[in-house]
Structure formats: C-alpha cells, structure tokens
Amino acid sequence: MLSAYRAYHLQRLSMIQRAWFLPLFAGLGVISWIAIATCEPPANDSGYRSSTHFMLIGEMPANTALRGTAQYDPMPGQHGCPYHHPQLHLDTRPSDLPQTFSFEVPLAWHLPDCTLQLSEVDFVTEGFYGAGYAQRSSTTSGAIAVRDALQKGVPGFPESGEKEYRGICSWQTYTQPDGQNLQSLLTCHAANRQWTLISDQRRPRRPGGAVSRNELAGKTIRMTFRMAEAS
C-alpha cells in the first residue's frame, strides 16, 4: 500500500526548476525544508513566516496526489525583494486509499527588507494507474485567489468560518496511434453541493474561487475531490 503523508517546503526557484520531482541543490541558492504540516518550521536568516494563517484541509480520492503551491508577492512599495518570489509547496503522496490532508498556510513571508503576502494557492492533481502505479496523468485542478477586495456578488466566508470548494475528477481512456497501448487522461472540474458539474459559458469550471485577504486570517478552506461514478 502506498502511504500518505503531509509535508511542505518553501523554495526560491526559477520556472525550469519548479517541477516537484527535481532534486534541490543548495549550490543554486535554494531555500528549502521539509516539515510536518502541523509543526512550526524553524525561523532562519533567510526569513520567517507570518503568525497569521489559514487552514487548508480536504480530501483526495484513492490513487491520486495533490500538489498545492502558495504564491507570495511583494507588498506595494517594497524594496530589496528577490526576483524569484518564494513559494510554499503543499504536497501529499499518492495512496491507494482515500486520504485527508491539512496544511497551515501563512498569509505573509518576511525577508530582510521585504515582506511578501499570499496572492494565490493553485492546485495540480496527479492520478496513478497501471501495474505498480507506473503510469500517471496530471491536471490543473483549481486555485484559490487572494484579493484585497472581492467583486460584487462573490460571497465571503460563512459564519462557520469554513468555506468549501468541491471537485469531481474522472478518467478518459484512449488508444495511442499505434493502436497497441492504452493511455488514461485525468481531468478535474468544479462541482456544487449536489456534486453536479458547475459550468461557465458551457465549459466546466475549475474548483476554487476568490477570497478576501481581510477575512482570511484564522479561517478554514476545504478542498474536497472525488472521482466521478463509473457510468
């Protein structure tokens, strides 16, 4: 059985180094660590996380893994900020059983002469199939955008302090041009409370939405993913 775990790390990476399966080299000036999500990572000379945060919790179906990436951008008027902005990776390992996850996401990151604030958390879901999970397919599976002000009509947090977004994932199988090998493609789309797909201009939407920065501290966002029922 493949085991599940919760881990995250902060990195300064160029675009070509962002793939989560690449090794991290200290000689390239990468700042990284791995820590249990419920533990407080130690401060260091390179900066420290803010005490204000929100909880990102959720559920993933069997044979999948979630990669969340929290983006941090300089506050207006900041000087001395790094060209490559830090990122916080919120990753789970694949499991052959449904799994839950829980991450504490800071709202800001403090560096010498620079404060960066959370701007977005985006998600990629990987699905695994085949003998020994040797084959995989990944898909963009939504985002949480942090805004200073919400557009008219966008709801804030309910009184419970928890906002939920839902996603339905499904597999499509197709045959390669040689007619020999079967491949599977994973997709994930937004769902409502009844687990019906949400469409925008006749196209399925991605899970997630916009939240107000002023409301976010101390709140909980739940991302719940399920596999579509086989027809």
Rank of each mutant, 00 (worst) to 15 (best):
L2H: 13
S3D: 11
A7I: 08
H9R: 08
Q11F: 07
W20T: 11
W20S: 09
L24I: 04
L24W: 03
G29K: 06
A37S: 12
T38K: 12
C39T: 10
P42V: 08
A43E: 13
A43H: 14
A43R: 15
Y48L: 04
S50E: 11
T52W: 03
M55S: 14
M55V: 15
G58I: 02
E59V: 09
M60A: 05
M60G: 04
A65N: 11
A70W: 03
D73Y: 07
M75W: 08
G77K: 00
Q78V: 00
H79S: 12
G80T: 02
G80C: 01
Y83P: 02
H85M: 04
Q87V: 03
D91R: 06
L97N: 13
L97K: 14
L97S: 15
T100C: 08
A108D: 09
W109E: 11
W109V: 05
D113K: 15
Q117F: 02
E120N: 10
A131D: 09
G132Y: 03
A134V: 03
A134P: 01
S137N: 05
T140W: 13
A143R: 15
L150F: 05
S160N: 15
E162M: 15
I168L: 14
T173H: 11
D178P: 09
T187K: 12
R193W: 08
Q194C: 04
L197F: 06
I198P: 00
P204C: 01
A210H: 10
L216G: 05
L216Y: 07
A217Y: 10
G218W: 02
G218S: 04
R222K: 14
A228K: 13
S231Y: 08
